[in-house]
Amino acid sequence: MCVGLSAKVVSIKGGVAIVDAGGAKKTVSSELLTDLNPGDYVMVHAGSAIAKITADDEDETDMLLEDIR
């Protein structure tokens, strides 16, 4: 139900951000996230940045898997 794509914030102005995913740029709403800056990575869904992302999936999944030994 929720196709999302991680993208990098290129610029931000007045509740609107331009994000870049592999060279594809799109203007999306940034008003759901406070304290967003250019260079941050976000998860984008249907025209809004819905979450600021911290790490890439590889580090995170490795850590989770170490926990289930």
Binding site: V3, L5, A7, D20, A21, G22, G23, A24, K26, V44
Partner: peptide, 12 residues
């Protein structure tokens, strides 16, 4: 191409 991946990723 990376850009094609980006566009198609956004649009599913």
């Amino acid at each position: 191409a990376e850009e094609v991946k980006g566009v198609t990723g956004m649009l599913g």
